[in-house]
């Protein structure tokens, strides 16, 4: 084991490390990446690195949240995000309860405020909230004393998905600054797109929203993104292509000419992949409509980080829960 090395490089990395140490995570809640600073996002990513090995070792648990209670409060169906949060909480040794909104008293007319206050009264430390109305996690956060983590609110944000996407990009590409990232598909209706955009811009990436005019409105330019409606003309410039899921319920509406046409113009086919950089990183938040937004051969190909994203989601969610809980202890 050698301790020698380039002294300048060593001093630089030491300085970066000590700089990072001065960043303290101050937030009890994680509601949106738009609210965070670049340093705070980096702190989450760095902390997640330390949680990565928990999933691969002999005992897949650390005692950091022992005796704490995490409640999953999902007002909208979700399998993978919920499972990811459950596993992440369990690996931190927390007790986890699933609160199914459909079978709850909400269907009997109780307000959200009353529901969350009742749940909190049972001694809850962290609430993981998903709701189809934007801003609901914020409303809940104002009404409870425990930590609230947004697991997706309407078309607003899905911060932990944005973080795990950015984490995966940094892991594979080694940096975020200067990366050319495309977000392709139904951008207008996507909370994943918004969280990616806010996080990536803060860390210095260039983000291009790609899709038909009906799904990629001009408003995104004001948020700092570039806009492109011809995928083939711009595809060669990207280091990362993040494909969004096409929600089938929107396909019948007039924003969508036809599935075939969408797939032909914006789907990531094997043919279209040939125009991209050879080392382009292909991502998708799942679940994939194979053959529509992405060809099966691309989803399973060497450039695909789809399964890596799922694995990284655990480490990122562990880091977020740990940091929010520590901030709550401090206040």
């Amino acid at each position: 084991m050698s301790t020698t090395g380039d002294p300048v490089q060593k001093a630089k990395s030491a300085a970066a490390a000590s700089e990072r140490e001065s960043v303290v995570w101050p937030h009890r809640h994680l509601l949106a990446l738009e609210d965070l600073t670049a340093d705070e996002i980096r702190l989450i990513l760095d902390t997640a690195e330390a949680f990565e090995d928990v999933s691969t070792r002999s005992v897949k648990k650390v005692p950091a949240l022992r005796g704490r209670v995490v409640v999953n409060l999902f007002f909208e169906d979700s399998t993978r995000t919920k499972t990811s949060f459950v596993l992440a909480a369990q690996r931190l040794s927390a007790d986890v309860v699933d609160f199914s909104a459909k079978s709850s008293s909400l269907s009997k007319g109780e307000s959200i405020r009353d529901t969350v206050r009742n749940i909190e009264a049972m001694g809850v430390d962290l609430l993981i909230v998903r709701h189809h109305v934007a801003g609901t996690p914020h409303l809940i956060a104002r009404n409870v004393g425990c930590c609230v983590i947004n697991a997706g609110d309407g078309r607003h944000e899905h911060p932990t998905q944005g973080l795990l996407d950015i984490y995966t990009m940094r892991q594979v590409k080694g940096r975020i600054e200067g990366l050319e990232v495309a977000i392709v598909g139904d951008v207008a209706n996507s909370r994943v797109a918004r969280s990616n955009l806010h996080g990536l811009l803060k860390l210095g990436a260039e983000v291009t929203m790609v899709g038909p005019t009906t799904l990629v409105p001009r408003a995104f330019e004001k948020m700092g993104a570039r806009i492109a409606h011809d995928f083939d003309r711009v595809i060669e410039q990207f280091d990362v292509i993040n494909m969004l899921r096409i929600q089938r319920e929107r396909i019948s509406s007039n924003v969508f000419p036809s599935l075939q046409e969408y797939s032909r113009l914006f789907g990531l086919s094997a043919q279209r992949m040939k125009r991209a950089k050879p080392d382009v990183l292909v991502m998708h938040p799942g679940p994939i409509n194979r053959g529509i937004e992405m060809a099966a051969s691309v989803a399973d190909g060497a450039n695909s980080a789809v399964l890596r994203q799922v694995t990284n989601g655990l480490a990122v969610r562990m880091a977020v829960m740990f940091l929010c809980k520590q901030a709550a202890e401090g206040s």
Binding site: E21, V24, W25, P26, T47, E49, A50, F51, E52, D53, A64, A319, F322, L323, Q326, A327, E329, G330, S331
Partner: peptide, 12 residues
């Protein structure tokens, strides 16, 4: 952990 709060730094 409860006492040190947000100043806890997790390293690899």
């Amino acid at each position: 952990l409860a006492e040190i709060g947000p100043s806890a730094v997790v390293r690899t």
